[in-house]
Computed example of a mutant assay.
Amino acid sequence: MQIVDLIVANGHWSWIVGGLVLLGLELVLPGGFLLWMGISGIITGLLTMVQPMPWPLQWLIFGGLSLLTTFAWVRWSRNRPTPTDRPFLNRRADHFIGHETVLEQAIAQGYGRVVLGDTVWRVSGPELPVGQRVRIVGSDGAVLKVEAIS
């Protein structure tokens, strides 16, 4: 009972220590939500230090802050674009939009071929002869859309 009396007498420190424990657990366990619960525990302890309040209200503040901060983090992180040094990694065809090249196979019945780098690409566009210079203007899956360059 002495531990319970100690916690009740120093409730604000209990929240702060509990928040620090949650922050420490965040370092070990994946997920991210323990960070926000730890911060909520520390804020609850600081509020209780400034204005003493009963335990049910302290738990209500802690729970509300935990839900609010976790929800805000999830919402913010989902709407934030992930920066990358390889933006066309899963969209290789989009990387070539704007490039100019020469047809290796004439476009007949809507399709032909070009060589870009070390890859032969299927292209679609108007009927054009072999050797015609073309500009890549779009893509449809793995098929590049081209137009003739005069």
Rank of each mutant, 00 (worst) to 15 (best):
Gln51Asp: 02
Leu25Glu: 10
Pro81Met: 02
Val123Gln: 11
Glu26Phe: 09
Gly141Asn: 06
Ser66Met: 14
His99Ile: 05
Ala106Arg: 03
Val130Asn: 13
Gly18Phe: 15
Val28Arg: 11
Thr70Tyr: 06
Ala72Pro: 03
Met53Arg: 11
Gly63Ala: 15
Arg135Ala: 08
Asp94Arg: 10
Leu29Ala: 14
Ile3Asn: 12
Trp55Pro: 01
Phe33Val: 15
Ile7Gln: 12
Gly38Trp: 09
Gln109Thr: 06
His95Ala: 05
Val50His: 03
Val21Met: 13
Val146Phe: 04
Gln105Asp: 14
His12Cys: 02
Arg113Gln: 11
Ile107Asn: 00
Thr69Ser: 12
Gly11Phe: 15
Leu22Trp: 05
Asp140Trp: 08
Ser14Ala: 15
Leu46Tyr: 10
Leu20Thr: 09
Thr69Asp: 05
Met37Ser: 13
Ala72Leu: 15
Ile149Trp: 02
Arg91Ala: 14
Gly45Ile: 05
Val130Lys: 14
Thr69Tyr: 13
Leu47Ser: 03
Asp140Thr: 08
Ile149His: 02
Leu57Gly: 07
Gly112Val: 05
Leu47His: 06
Val50Gly: 02
Arg113Val: 02
Leu35Thr: 08
Trp76Glu: 08
Glu104Ala: 14
Ala106Asn: 06
Gly125Ala: 07
Asn79Ile: 07
Leu27Lys: 09
Ile97His: 03
Gln105Thr: 15
Gly112His: 06
Gly24His: 13
Gly110Pro: 11
Asn79Met: 10
Leu46Ser: 05
Pro126Arg: 07
Pro54Trp: 01
Leu6Val: 12
Ile39Gln: 03
Met49Asn: 09
Gly41Asp: 04
Val21Tyr: 12
Pro83Ala: 05
Glu127Leu: 00
Ser124Val: 08
Arg91Lys: 15
Gly41Ala: 06
Phe71Arg: 10
Gly38Met: 08
Gly24Asp: 14
Thr101Phe: 08
Pro126Ser: 09
Ala148Tyr: 01
Arg91Thr: 13
Leu27Trp: 14
Gln58Leu: 01
Arg92Ile: 05
Gly125Trp: 04
Ser77Lys: 12
Ile97Phe: 04
Pro56Trp: 03
Leu68Pro: 09
Gly110Gln: 13
Gln109Lys: 12
Gly38Leu: 09
Trp36Cys: 00
Asp5Leu: 03
His12Val: 00
Leu128Ala: 04
Val115Gln: 10
Leu144Asp: 11
Glu100Lys: 13
Val130Pro: 03
Leu20Ile: 15
Glu104Val: 10
Ile3Cys: 09
Thr44Arg: 00
Val50Gln: 05
Ile97Ser: 02
Gly45Ala: 08
Leu67Val: 15
Leu116Arg: 08
Trp13His: 01
Ile42Gly: 03
Leu103Gln: 09
Gly41Met: 04
Ile3Pro: 06
Asn90Pro: 02
Leu89Tyr: 14
Leu20Ser: 06
Val120Met: 09
Phe33Asp: 09
Ala9Trp: 01
Met49Cys: 07
Thr69Glu: 05
Ser124Lys: 15
Asp140Lys: 07
